[in-house]
Computed example of a mutant assay.
Amino acid sequence: MSREPDFLENLRAELSGGRRWLDRAIVLAYAVVAGLLVVGLTMAGDRAFALFERLYDAQPWALLVWTPALTVVIVWATRRWFPGAAGSGIPQVKAALEPALPPERIGRLVSLRLALAKMVLTVGGLAAGLSIGREGPSVQVAAAVMQHARRWLSPGTVIDARALLVAGGAAGIAAAFNAPLAGVLFAIEELYGRFEARASGLIITAIVLAGLVAVAVFGNHSYFGVIRVPYLDWSALVPGVAVTLAAGVAGGLFSRL
């Protein structure tokens, strides 16, 4: 016969686990650091792209030299010293989460060294005017920071390296776009199935905390601005259907090719 859980007994057991609380504090501290790094990447990226725009306004023809030259330097440095920093960043984190991947190879995909390189290379790419975004780099940077916390946790902790990678990847989204709940949704949608049930509450807390760091810096505003939909009447029906059909056909042909 099942009995009701003893609230006081469970509370006493929870509060008596000092090492467990220290592990939680370490994870949350790393979440704050991850949020700060992503915020720094966001601010540096915005300034780098503003530099590109000023150069475009002042000397547009200079970009014919500036963009290719800086791109060559970025590609050369990436291939020479930081091959793990190439690409978006999200595929690297998802690959690091694969159970079949040996633990010693995770460092080739996410590490503090790659995180710092990713930040510098991303800022350089934005200064060159390359068509890149911060979503992937933010995921890889924050995942690398959170994964580093594993070395300070107790041997018997239920928080494994892959749970930290999930927290870091989602924390990167939360901090990059000033949207804590979006980070939780990203973890569920993109990194679904990697949560440890015993650590899920802590992981979600870490994601939200990293997002709140961004909110504290940038304020509680919508990153993508406010969408104002104009009044629509029946005159938009035919063009709307035409564009929808054309986009569907083009997408299908692209997928087939």
Rank of each mutant, 00 (worst) to 15 (best):
I159R: 00
G211N: 04
R47Y: 12
V65W: 03
Y192H: 13
L36T: 04
E196F: 01
R228T: 15
L112F: 03
K118C: 11
V110R: 05
A58M: 09
T122S: 11
L28S: 06
R3S: 09
A163I: 04
L22V: 15
M119Y: 02
V166H: 02
K94S: 10
A187G: 14
K94M: 15
A127K: 08
G84S: 11
A161R: 12
P91R: 07
L8F: 06
A29P: 03
G87Y: 05
G129T: 08
A163D: 01
G107Q: 09
L109H: 07
I106H: 05
E189H: 03
V33Y: 00
G211W: 05
V184M: 07
A29L: 13
G240H: 12
A210F: 00
V93M: 07
L245W: 06
L130Y: 02
V120Y: 02
V215Y: 07
G136T: 07
G219D: 12
L153G: 04
V215C: 08
W76Y: 10
A96V: 00
F186M: 05
L64C: 07
T42I: 01
I173F: 05
G40M: 07
W152G: 04
S131V: 13
P5K: 04
V141M: 04
A31V: 07
E190A: 09
A171C: 06
I173W: 02
E98A: 15
A77L: 15
L153R: 03
L245F: 08
A50P: 14
P60Q: 07
D57A: 15
V72H: 07
G172W: 01
R3Q: 08
A246D: 14
R47I: 10
S255A: 15
A96L: 07
